[in-house]
Amino acid sequence: MDADKTIDCVGLYCPMPIVKTAQAVKKLTQGEVLEVVADDKGIKSDMPAWAEKTGNEFLGVEEDGGEIKVYVRKKAD
């Protein structure tokens, strides 16, 4: 999936990937897509929950071995 920005959260655990996602999305403009690369599988549940609560759009997960890529589109300000 194409993204406007990627953040590397490999090796980081809860709550850091979500905190870093929130910080990164703040800097995007509406409609842009953020890619989060992580390896803590909690992110697969946490990212949709974060998006739902914050009013952003969860676009999906791609997995490659131990690497997990999740995508969110900035919807809210």
């Binding site: 709550p15 979500i18 905190v19 929130a22 910080q23 974060w50 609560k53 914050t54």
Partner: peptide
């Protein structure tokens, strides 16, 4: 503090 930081990141 884990919950506080996550909550703040979720706009709470």
């Amino acid at each position: 503090f884990n919950l506080a930081n996550t909550g703040a990141s979720m706009g709470m």
